[in-house]
Design a protein around this nucleic acid. Structure first.
Length: 475
RNA sequence: GCACCCAUCGACUAGAGGCCUAGGUCGUCACCCUUUCACGGUGAAAACACGGGUUCGAAUCCCGUUGGGUGUACCA
């Protein structure tokens, strides 16, 4: 029954932007829901009021939307459920599954310090219950702050993890943990469990960092009389130094990739394949194909290094798969003011020439700068290599010819090739100086197309000023 | 420290005992295409962490070592 319509969620805490690791977790959950005809929900874990903010919540929502991940209904707010969580905690107390601990933070800290001094591991070990009854009562009378701790039962808990398989934890390794703080607020461990139950979650797919805490949560599910959902723990994303991916590794926020001109499809594709593989040799999969291919048992169990090189490549692939219209639409937000003022057809022509020469949208304006400005300077190495007599000496002659022809690819090509032939040199010998004069550099799209798009007037003007500006050297 | 997780080319991965002379992709290198740059094409170098078992046979199963990760909070 559960299998038919699974309910899954992504539960970020709004203490930062949408991290690529979080995005990937969201993607896996989303894929699982789509694949199995289930429901994907969002929950904002905003119980840490100090570090949470509405801006961050919005940024996370924006990031998900950008990636094309949609969720059902309004995002669930964890903090809004605090009273409900506390209620459930009190139920644990009534049922004898939790107890009040009157130890002060100072006393706890002392225990820690003592343990460390003796070189022993710190262990709370039900200290709150070991306190003599009269002392407990005295502290209660005197209004000592008290926390509610979960009484971890004896035994062991086995988790059937969707990606890791069977894992057993012995309860003697688990300390009695706090479920209600001394101010009465619920602690994360409790909140997740109650929320996931209330939201009807059937599968919890989340980061590996929650694996060790899973038995505590399972114990809570059982103590509260809830059905225990299925768990799947996906490995974390690492930086190039194999350490957990963080800001110092470069861009980690999804929004940064957006700004840097990556396409959402490419990022989605890349992230999906980081820790998952369809099992065949496909590297480029559409959303639909990804949904079709997705199954948690093909999820990787070891962590993966985030490799921007491959993302870059994928982005280039997606860029080249777009037609002119799609590309110019995607490019639009990345165009500078001067580009936006240009004639639409002209910009489209330029995009057509540049599309396979860029890998991110943000590169475009710089890479195509000479389509807007006459070169202000000329590539030094290019000058040394290509600006020589007798080719350059013969340029005025070529200019004269160009003046009389129509700027089509064909006409330009035959004029320039004929000119080269007259000089008895390969066409490249003529084309390189032309490129230098017209673009200022040594790399550009095909020269005939470039000149056609630039137009006769611009080309001739640039040729004439190059002739004046660059001194000719003998070969 | 203790507990848990993990370990195939530099990176992402395929591999569920013989199909492995370990496959694909990114990156790297070479060559081809070519007016340059890119794209594209062809090819090359490049890995089963180590040590023991189990088995006729192990990248695949078991144990240990080493290495990495996570958890162990009145953070989430």
């Amino acid at each position: 029954m559960q299998e038919a319509h699974p309910r899954v969620r992504f539960a970020p805490s709004p203490t930062g932007y949408l991290h690529v690791g979080g995005a990937r977790t969201a993607i896996f959950n989303w894929l699982y829901a789509k694949k199995n005809n289930g429901t994907f929900l969002l929950r904002i874990e905003d119980t840490d009021k100090q570090r949470s903010s509405d801006e961050m919540t919005q940024a996370i929502l924006d990031g998900l939307t950008w990636l094309g991940i949609d969720w059902e209904g309004e995002p669930w707010s964890q903090s809004a459920q605090a009273e409900r969580h506390a209620q459930e905690a009190r139920r644990l107390l009534e049922e004898g599954k939790a107890y009040y601990c009157y130890l002060t933070p100072e006393e706890l800290q002392q225990m820690r310090a003592d343990a460390e001094a003796k070189g022993e591991p710190y262990w709370y070990g039900r200290a709150g219950l070991r306190m003599p009854e009269e002392e407990r009562q005295r502290r209660e009378r005197e209004g000592y702050a008290k926390t509610l701790r979960f009484k971890v039962p004896e035994g062991e808990t086995t988790v059937e993890d969707l990606v890791h398989g069977t894992i057993t934890f012995e309860h003697k390794e688990i300390d009695d943990f706090i479920v209600l703080r001394s101010d009465g607020s619920p602690v994360y461990m409790l909140s997740v469990v109650v929320d996931d139950h209330d939201m009807g979650m059937t599968h919890i797919i989340r980061g590996d960092d929650h694996l060790s805490n899973t038995p505590k949560q399972v114990l809570l599910y059982q103590a509260l009389g809830y059905d225990v959902p299925a768990f799947g723990h996906v490995p974390l994303i690492l930086g190039t130094d194999k350490k957990r991916l963080s800001k110092r590794h470069g861009a980690t926020a999804v929004g940064e990739y957006h700004e840097r001109g990556f396409l959402p499809e490419a990022v989605f594709n890349y992230l999906s394949l980081l820790g998952f593989s369809p099992g065949d040799d496909r590297e480029i999969l559409s959303r639909t194909e990804m949904i079709e291919a997705f199954t948690p048992d093909r999820l990787q169990i070891s962590s993966a290094v985030f490799d921007e090189q491959k993302l870059l490549w994928l982005n280039g692939q997606y860029l080249r798969m777009m037609d002119a219209k799609q590309l110019s639409q995607a490019l639009d937000p990345f165009l500078t003011k001067e580009w936006k003022q240009l004639d639409n057809t002209y910009v489209k022509d330029v995009i057509g020439l540049m599309s396979e020469r860029i890998t991110t949208l943000s590169e475009f304006c710089d890479a195509a700068a000479y389509f807007v400005h006459d070169p202000a300077e000329y590539d030094e190495k290019g000058v040394r290599k290509h600006w020589k007599s007798p080719i350059v000496d013969a340029l005025p002659e070529l200019i004269a010819t160009l003046e009389s022809i129509e700027f089509t690819d064909e006409a330009l090509e035959s004029a320039i090739r004929a000119h080269a032939e007259r000089l008895d040199v390969g066409a490249g010998k003529v084309i390189q100086p032309l490129r230098l004069a017209i673009t200022g550099g040594t790399a550009s799209p095909g020269m005939f197309e470039t000149m056609r798009v630039l137009g006769k007037e611009t080309c001739l003007r640039r040729l004439r000023s190059a002739l004046k500006a660059i001194p000719v050297s003998d070969s």
